[in-house]
Amino acid sequence: MPELIAPTTRLHAAWLEAHREWGPGVHEDGFGLRLSDEVGTLEGFAAWVARLSGAPDRAKVPVRTVYRWIIDGDRVLGGIALRHGSDEAVERAGHIGYGIRPSARRRGVATWALGRMLDEARVLGMSRVLAVCAADNIASAKTIERQGGVLEGIRDTELGLARRYWIEIGGPSA
């Protein structure tokens, strides 16, 4: 049974295994990985996890991000991020971003995780969230639609065509 957890150094080896499955780069949506992050060493991994967990220097950032890892036992299946606030990054990438490792796809993991993050968004007082995916990513589009996403439209972005969905979730008392 999957669960969402805060990033942890305890799963360094399991996270590296998932990262290797994706291949090189920082393309795993939902993990907040930057080119400058050194995740191969335990020290670098710990620094990255500390940054994701809300290190003090993030207090000045207008958009706060909640990162969760999707795990099953000690296996990292993916990551999901909830950005709350508003700025150009939210406008471009949406409030929620997620990625599921290739071997865990097509099992409903993304739909389940998105539903849990919508619960977190509701607790934070958000009444709706923007979810964005590549226009040709039909699996992600279906995931968003399963959680109530309504297509706003398709836009041309610096990364190509992107679908933009709004998901109405109501407030904390909804």
Rank of each mutant, 00 (worst) to 15 (best):
W15T: 08
Y165D: 04
F45T: 02
P172N: 03
E152N: 10
G171P: 02
G153Y: 11
G78W: 15
T157S: 11
V26Q: 13
L118E: 14
H19R: 13
T157N: 00
R51L: 15
H27Q: 12
R128T: 08
V150K: 13
L151P: 00
W15E: 06
I71K: 13
L4Q: 10
F31D: 07
D37A: 12
R163T: 00
A6Y: 13
V129E: 03
G54N: 09
R10F: 11
E17K: 11
T65G: 07
P24C: 00
A139H: 06
H84V: 12
R83E: 02
I5H: 04
R106A: 10
K60S: 13
L161S: 11
W48G: 01
A134Y: 10
T41I: 08
G148A: 09
W22Q: 10
F45W: 14
Y67C: 05
A81C: 14
E3M: 14
N137C: 02
V109I: 15
V66T: 12
G99T: 00
L11P: 00
W15N: 03
G32T: 07
L42F: 05
P56D: 14
G23D: 06
L4D: 07
L151Y: 02
T8P: 11
I70W: 07
H19L: 14
I100F: 04
A93N: 13
L159R: 15
S173W: 10
V129T: 09
A110L: 07
N137E: 05
A6G: 06
Y98L: 15
S140Q: 14
I100M: 05
G148S: 09
A6H: 12
E3Y: 14
A13V: 12
N137T: 03
G115N: 05
D72W: 09
I70C: 10
P56M: 12
G30R: 00
T143V: 15
A131T: 04
A134Q: 13
E91M: 08
R122W: 08
I100A: 02
L4R: 11
A113T: 07
P172L: 06
W112H: 04
N137A: 05
M1N: 09
G160V: 00
G85K: 05
L4N: 13
A46R: 08
Y67N: 09
H19D: 12
A89P: 01
L77K: 04
G171M: 04
L35A: 15
V109W: 00
I144Q: 08
R34V: 01
I169D: 02
G85D: 02
A134T: 02
A121Q: 01
E91Q: 09
R34M: 11
V109L: 01
W48D: 00
E43A: 15
R51G: 10
E158N: 06
A139K: 04
R107E: 05
W48I: 00
T111S: 15
L77E: 04
G97F: 10
P102E: 01
G108V: 12
R106E: 11
V66K: 08
S36F: 09
R146S: 15
I71A: 13
D37W: 13
L124I: 07
A46L: 09
K60T: 12
R51V: 04
S103T: 04
A47P: 01
D136R: 00
R64C: 06
G160N: 01
S173I: 05
E91N: 07
D29H: 08
E43H: 08
D74R: 14
